[in-house]
Amino acid sequence: MTDPRKIIDGLLVLQYRAGSNKALGVLVRKYHPKLCKHSYWYTHDLNAAKDIVQDSWSIIINKMDSLSNPNLFGSWAFRIVTRKSLDYVNRKNRELRSLQIYHNGQVLEEVEGNNDEAVRKLLNAMRSLPNDQQIVLRLFYTEDYSLKEISEILEIAIGTVKSRLFHAREKLKTILRNNKRSPLEGNHEGNN
């Protein structure tokens, strides 16, 4: 059974295609904050995230007529923002590597202002995962996308999504378990 929210999105897309700018306004109000938050998760830069989403809206509006299933507007819009955000991150990483070489390898580390120890440990553990696993975790747990929707957003097979999610969970468990034991590790025999 199709999610009623997706049906509403589909109706709004169809209304926009028929000439209703109000329908577009509803979609923008509904998705703009979510898309900004989604982009920020990748970029860690609020201004960049806003710019990315603004650029994405231009693409979304220009290509809305080509959306074959209007009910999938949300995952389609997230896929566009994901791609643009990853492009931004890749570009920034290339720039950072250039700066690192220029500055003899010194790197400024971003410090998050979250004081909750458990959340901070989880975020740190997540950062140690491969980027593709981080993305799947975020889409599944914080954005509440289904496996099928994640597969569509990232343009990968559902089996790949399941595999990445499974491996990410297992690695997180191991990392968090090891972090709990880390103060005592020096006392254990046989450590390598």
Rank of each mutant, 00 (worst) to 15 (best):
M1V: 14
D3F: 15
P4K: 11
D9H: 03
G10Q: 01
G10N: 01
L14K: 12
R17Y: 04
R17S: 03
G19T: 05
K22M: 01
A23C: 02
G25R: 03
V26G: 08
V26R: 06
V28C: 03
H32L: 14
L35K: 08
C36V: 14
K37F: 11
H38F: 15
Y40S: 11
W41Y: 02
Y42I: 14
N47S: 11
D51G: 09
V53N: 05
V53A: 09
Q54F: 04
S56P: 04
W57G: 07
I59S: 02
I60K: 00
I61C: 03
N62T: 01
N62R: 04
M64P: 03
S68W: 00
N69V: 00
N69H: 06
N69D: 09
P70Q: 04
P70R: 02
P70A: 06
F73R: 00
F73T: 00
G74F: 04
A77L: 01
F78M: 12
F78D: 11
R79A: 15
R79C: 13
I80T: 14
V81K: 02
Y88N: 12
Y88Q: 14
N90C: 12
K92Y: 12
K92R: 13
L96P: 12
R97N: 12
R97Q: 12
L99W: 07
Q100N: 13
I101R: 15
I101L: 15
Q106I: 05
L108A: 09
E110C: 10
V111A: 11
E112L: 07
A118Q: 15
A118L: 09
L122R: 06
L123W: 03
R127A: 08
S128E: 11
N131Y: 08
Q133I: 08
Q134K: 01
I135W: 09
I135L: 10
I135G: 03
F140N: 15
T142Q: 15
Y145G: 04
Y145W: 07
S146V: 08
S146G: 10
S146L: 06
S146Y: 03
I150H: 08
S151H: 06
E152S: 10
L154H: 10
L154A: 09
E155N: 14
E155M: 13
I156D: 06
V161Q: 04
V161C: 05
K162G: 10
R164K: 15
L165V: 06
F166S: 14
H167I: 12
R169S: 07
L172G: 13
L176S: 04
R177M: 07
R177Y: 13
N178E: 05
N178H: 05
R181Y: 07
R181H: 06
R181K: 04
R181N: 03
S182Q: 10
G186N: 11
G186Y: 06
H188A: 04
H188S: 06
N191W: 08
N191M: 11
N192M: 10
